[in-house]
Design a protein around this nucleic acid. Structure first.
Length: 492
RNA sequence: GUCCCCAUCGUCUAGUCAGGUCCAGGACAUCGGCCUUUCACGCCGACAACACCGGUUCGAAUCCGGUUGGGGACGCCA
């Protein structure tokens, strides 16, 4: 059995979007499963649209996801010679021919065909030019492209798709496609095949939008005398209107970077991505990396396209609810030490990190995360909703302010009183803090809830949170006392 | 227009290849309940789908044909 070799070949014309990330993930999974190799190849032959920034963005995104590659990144432009040689070979052996039709003529023909509702393919005007005719046109300096010559055969050409099954089409349906531009630069269809042959790619797993390309490329492998790899075409990712998701029409919500910046856990996002078009065949939805590598199969990839359930302006969900829910699952169930590392980065970015959290206060740090993580959706929440645990500059939300504070004028006297009582406690424990709070409520003949909810607002700025006395003990006597004493400023 | 692919709850899907155990299972979302000083978590429950029409068969979500619907491709982009 020869080594399995897969590749992920993005074109650097923008950020990595979730469809591309899923393609990379599936390739990566199979490479890992078979002990094969994953190759990253940047397909930058379109000089006009390729950018350095985009290359960096793609590499960063893959790294964030944890999709590591074994070879590369290779750059397609570095192999221009291979591409040109292959084109020449095809030309020399009669598998390709020069076409002198101008772009304008072709555009006009295409438009006319579209209007007449006729097939749009190339009409093969230059296919049977004699050597003399070609020489004549070249002497006249008429620019030419090179087209691949679809063999004149009856019947169907096709391939066995590991996801879709047998795919076939009539030879007569396939266009004599251009493989080299008039400026001498080879095009994707050719370069891609030449690179895959050189890189000894055994499996080409890509989106269904490449299905017609594959038909053409199968013919090129044959003409180039190379073995045809295994092909598999994955379902596309669509939006809720069933349009292909794209950078252009959807913006950053479909970019991997958005999820990194929104505080997603990388593996959680991979877990979401893999489920968009694949299932293990049972009810399992959460996988460790090892489990997923073991369970993944091409055969279980869905044939139909999946919808990325993102609703613009949804007040409750800023992206696909399932993605959020999977992230929440990992957030509250993952190893607390690992979570600690991720939250550390968030705290550092917001200048809230203290080195003692890695040292004498490590237990406090991890216990605090454990206490508050149940209510959070993303890593970002630790520095926003959870800010009061790490800093004094937290905001008091308007809603709890109105509901729990402003409604009770008496708090202006009660909290300084409570602060004094708390200050005197030698044992600032769950039991003692609760006893004192309830005692005060009894003395004042008010419901304990008024004290408790008011404290939550003053001490954390939030409407909701963990058990109040857990919060007090976690935040600590000194800070609690100080915060309770600021009560009057909230009424200002 | 031509060719290719696809079709189960709102969304992701199991079940389809080997027809009966499926008046269709799970997850997310939604709605109710329990828990609770808050909000979550957790637990319990509800709502909700085999696109349509024919055929084959004792029996079809599953096989066959057609219709409809959706998607993709048809670039001197990748």
């Amino acid at each position: 059995m020869t080594e399995t070799r897969l590749r992920f070949p993005p074109s650097p014309t923008g950020y990595l979007h979730i469809g591309g990330a899923r393609t990379a993930l599936y390739n990566w999974l199979y490479a890992k499963q078979t002990g094969g190799k994953l190759i990253l190849r940047i397909e930058d032959t379109d000089a006009e649209r390729s950018t350095e920034e985009s290359i960096q963005g793609i590499v960063d995104s893959l790294e964030w996801l944890g999709i590591d590659f074994d070879e590369g990144p290779y750059f397609q432009t570095e192999f221009a010679e291979d591409h040109t040689k292959a084109a020449q070979k095809l030309l020399d052996q009669g598998s390709a021919y020069k076409c002198f039709c101008s772009k304008e003529t072709l555009d006009a023909k295409r438009e006319a065909a579209l209007a007449a509702k006729k097939p749009l393919g190339y009409d093969r005007t230059c296919r049977n030019l004699t050597a003399a005719e070609v020489a004549e046109k070249e002497a006249a300096a008429i620019p030419s492209v090179i087209r691949f010559k679809i063999p004149e055969r009856n019947g169907a050409l096709g391939y066995d798709d590991v996801i879709l099954g047998r795919i076939e089409s009539q030879y007569s349906e396939v266009d004599d496609f251009v493989i080299v531009r008039s400026n001498g630069k080879p095009l994707y269809l050719l370069c891609n095949v030449v690179d895959d042959i050189r890189d000894r790619i055994s499996h080409v797993i890509r989106g269904q939008d490449h299905m017609t390309n594959t038909l053409k490329q199968v013919l090129m492998y044959e003409a180039l005398g190379a073995p045809v790899p295994v092909f598999g075409h994955m379902p596309l990712t669509l939006d809720t209107k069933k349009a292909k998701i794209s950078k252009r029409s959807h913006g950053e919500i479909v970019s991997v970077q958005f999820y990194r910046d929104s505080g997603f856990i990388p593996w959680a996002f991979n877990n979401f991505l893999v489920l968009l078009g694949w299932s293990a065949g049972n009810d399992q939805e959460f996988f460790t990396k090892e489990e997923l590598i073991k369970a993944f199969t091409f055969e279980r990839i869905n044939k139909s396209s999946a919808i990325f359930n993102y609703r613009k302006n949804d007040p409750k969900f800023f992206t696909d609810p399932k993605a959020i829910s999977i992230n929440e699952h990992y957030l509250r169930s993952m190893d607390i030490t690992k979570l600690g590392l991720m939250v550390k980065k968030e705290l550092q970015a917001d200048d809230l990190w203290l080195d003692t959290y890695d040292a004498e206060r490590k237990n406090w740090y991890l216990q605090t995360l454990d206490l508050i993580r149940d209510r959070f959706h993303t890593l970002k929440d630790f520095t926003t909703l959870g800010r009061a645990y790490f800093a004094d500059d937290f905001q008091v939300d308007e809603k709890p302010l109105k509901k729990n504070v402003l409604k009770h004028e008496g708090l202006k006297e009660w909290f300084p009183d409570l602060a004094n009582r708390y200050e005197k406690l030698s044992d600032f424990s769950l039991e003692e803090t609760e006893r004192v709070a309830r005692e005060l409520a009894t003395e004042l003949e008010i419901k304990p809830g008024i004290i408790i909810n008011g404290m939550r607002t003053v001490v954390t700025g939030q409407l909701a949170g963990p058990s109040m006395f857990d919060i007090l003990v976690t935040i600590g006597q000194e800070k609690v006392v100080a915060r309770l004493r600021t009560i009057a400023t909230l009424f200002a």
